[in-house]
Design a protein around this nucleic acid. Structure first.
Lengths: 336, 336
DNA sequence: ATAGGTTGTCGAAGCGCTTCGACAGCTTTC
DNA sequence: GAAAGCTGTCGAAGCGCTTCGACAACCTAT
């Protein structure tokens, strides 16, 4: 293993000079710099991460805490995680993957040990048990998701309330009156995950203004659960012509069921989904949808965290504006 | 920040004693141990990760390199990643998330800097460019996937050849003769990802023995691509009654298309999928499938790596035996 | 009773790096 | 032409921990 000292000797300078070449924290003559860089290359030197962390009390690692739940649509998580990892690298950080398994203890462990310089928390609940800890230790952190109380916290999320409103508007404009909302699994609501409730809130308040009759039903993913849910909905509101689907694993089953019942999309029934672009495009009917900008959320989270670590910028809540893309699954409400 | 020295002082012992209490590498009297543990708790001490890594040249971190590709089904990746993270924790390791972005450089960086003690590589290609590096540096590593040359490497994977054979057997036993294989996206084959080719190999060799007529067609995910692929298949082999699907994002489109064409599953046509359990169970028809044991793969990978890091166990190729679960999508071939 | 083992603890060295203060050798300024 | 300011480099201290050898204190066997 090659050390700084060896590089220094090889280049005929002192260790501190090599260090300054590497960090750029003091000016170094072009000549010296080149000699040092040359030696680094020749010897294949890589700074030792541990030593660096010890001496500088900076690990250049960001911890990413992802939840360990099975009732959430995972691809979105993955997309965010990958966006976080790649963005972090462009800022010189690596990413440590923590699962919800450990819960709040993970926050303590990482904070206490200096393993990571800051953390990003995904799938934050309205009243998340990790938040008090975060505030206490004033560990630099960014949340993806929106808790009830955001004081002293930096959060990034899609504006789900606006998302709900957007869906309501779209369907109302097309003349739909009876609209069913296929929500996330019941567990998601019980856990008070903010985004599900906020979407509903947006749908309801804008829906009311526009004279929509909304019927909200949580739904586990999958074909069977969707069949039951749909039956109940049509039983209760036979005149339903619009659907807003938030649970992605209910999308395809819904389309299949509607087809099976002879309800044509979009002629008889319109469907709006809240899901990643890819899902909307690959579905059996190209879906009118509001995209969940996973990549953007991951990128934003990292960039805010890095800013904090650099002492720039403070607490802030960033809500990304939703965008609705009209595709083939929505159209004018059928004449009565 | 509380240091070892402070704990030592508080407990009235020397620093080394505290260290030995923590590591258990020397015997400590019950009395002293308790005093030290008490102090640790009272002061809320957490060992500094950097200092530890520097002194012991062990970071207690495992690097997990996941590919950054969009043509692979991501949920499986996610499942593996989570399994890796949780298993690693039970062995006292944390997980560093690397994306394929950096490519082989990431291997160099991590190896050189001592950031991680070992690595797990996912989505290994038959002739992966990271492998020479791995062998050179003899960085402890475990691959998930199977390269062409496994000498000096430890690999964990589903036995895809046996998987293919199993699917062939199942359909042959049911009396099917013309079987179409819906493969992964063409890019996957071009890249020579082992698992796709091995599955095909298993299907072909066992299929030949059993007198199956196989038609293999790569397929991008999604409805449109599947529609084109299916049309070509049925054009070429109108008598096709069996389907083996390896690309999960083609499963639901295929079912929808078959339904649409009035081909009943499983009465007219049988479908066998190679996919995670969850997908098989949630599909619009409960799918006969060979499960991809993502969790198990992740767990195995970590356990082998940890064994290596402890100096136990050597190189080894572990192929998990596939299991085919019969569900509602396969049945006897229709009478001619 | 004495040599030889154990057991439990300590002190000190050192892991590879960052960073601070010092300072030699310049250039600028009045 | 002396005072003041830059620039570029160095030496040394120290980050918090692990680990090795040393060594008291005690316990066996002979």
């Amino acid at each position: 293993m090659v050390t700084l000292a060896e590089v220094a000797q090889h280049a005929g300078v002192s260790a501190s000079t090599v260090s300054y070449v590497l960090s750029g924290k003091r000016s170094i003559s072009a000549n010296t710099r080149q000699r040092v860089e040359q030696s680094i290359r020749e010897l294949g030197y890589h700074p030792n991460a541990g030593a660096r962390a010890l001496a500088s009390s900076r690990s250049n690692i960001i911890a990413l805490m992802i939840p360990l739940r099975t009732d959430m649509y995972v691809p979105v998580m993955m997309e965010i995680a990958i966006a976080v990892a790649t963005t972090a690298r462009t800022h010189g950080y690596d990413v440590l993957l923590l699962t919800g398994e450990e819960g709040p203890d993970a926050v303590r462990r990482v904070t206490g040990s200096g393993l990571a310089d800051g953390m990003i928390l995904m799938d934050v609940e309205l009243d998340d048990e990790r938040l008090p800890l975060l505030r206490d230790t004033d560990q630099p952190a960014v949340l993806i998701g929106l808790p009830a109380d955001t004081t002293g916290l930096t959060c990034v999320d899609l504006d789900f309330k606006a998302t709900g409103a957007l869906c309501a508007e779209h369907l109302a404009t097309l003349g739909h009156r009876d609209v069913a909302v296929i929500g996330e699994a019941p567990a998601v609501y019980e856990r008070h995950t903010g985004f599900a409730e906020r979407t509903l809130d947006g749908l309801r308040s804008r829906g009311r203004e526009l004279g929509l009759r909304l019927l909200h039903r949580p739904c586990e993913g999958g074909y069977d659960a969707m069949a039951v849910t749909l039956a109940r909905i049509l039983d209760e509101r036979p005149g339903t012509t619009g659907f807003v689907v938030q649970n992605e694993s209910a999308v395809e089953p819904l389309l299949a069921l509607l087809r099976q019942q002879g309800r044509a999309v979009p002629e008889d029934v319109s469907v709006v989904a809240i899901c990643p672009e890819q899902v909307a495009v690959q579905a059996s009917v190209r879906l009118t949808s509001v995209a969940i900008p996973a990549q953007e959320m991951g990128r934003h989270a990292v960039e805010h965290l890095v800013a904090k670590l650099d002492g720039r910028g403070g607490d802030e809540v960033v809500l990304l504006a939703p965008e609705l893309t009209v595709r083939a699954s929505s159209g004018p409400a059928p004449a009565q």
